[in-house]
Nucleic acid binder design. Structure first.
Lengths: 121, 121
DNA sequence: ATCAGATATACTGTCAACCATATATCTACC
DNA sequence: GGTAGATATATGGTTGACAGTATATCTGAT
């Protein structure tokens, strides 16, 4: 049901906010993609994603080695509105613009096969 | 210019969130009205309003004994969108619904003259 | 079964936020 | 000038959040 205080508490941390903005704009992303895009060590990303998951803001899905996260599809509409407004209103600004640019430079992104060759570990 | 982290940090506290929702729905309100509506002691209200003011989220205006606060008119549109979405999406829920109802029961609200007689101290 | 890659959790120290009470400021009025 | 009402700030104490490092888990392949 998503209490507003839970939502805002989740959005208050820079790492979590950057992850969420990236997910709003890019859809599903795995931990390693988020860590690469933000330039942040994996345990830190993971810890913050756990809080987002516990808060009901994101949903996770295991795919082989990787765990993919996305904005939870069952959020109430006012919460979705807030996430989208935040992403759109700040997409051109630091650090969000850089995160997106850096993600684009990442090679061998899981789930995104280069051509038809399967990307193995 | 309103950094998103500043906004969400401000929205993260229950007292501040209730004040903001009330201001979104009712317009300008003074400290005593907010304190009455929330059932919260004055120094607490004042402290949180100071943070909202310093964050650029609200604007204050002195009128005689009273200081009136309102949502800052120069907020970027994405921030306004967030405030309105929060207020609309939660207006029917606790504790926001009660705050509004309690405000309506307040007698001698400053600025709101009962009839045409001026309301003095 | 073992090993490596990907992700999650635990532990410790530090710092910021909150509350409650008390006190200070500022305005209007006498 | 002095007083009262309305609002603001200061202080002390407590709690909760975050960072960094180390370690555990889980999956897939050899």
């Amino acid at each position: 049901m998503m209490e507003p205080l839970v939502l805002f508490r989740a959005l208050m941390d820079e790492t979590r906010l950057r992850c969420l903005v990236l997910m709003v704009n890019e859809g599903e992303l795995c931990v390693c993609e988020l860590g690469y895009a933000l330039g942040v060590v994996q345990p830190k990303i993971s810890r913050h994603l756990a809080l987002l998951r516990q808060s009901g803001l994101v949903q996770d899905r295991r795919v082989g080695h990787w765990v993919h996260y996305r904005i939870h599809p069952d959020l109430p509409s006012w919460a979705t509105t807030i996430l989208k407004a935040t992403a759109e209103g700040n997409l051109a600004m630091e650090p969000f613009s850089d995160d997106q640019a850096r993600l684009r430079t990442m090679a061998d992104r899981p789930g995104r096969c280069a051509g038809f060759a399967e990307v193995t570990t």
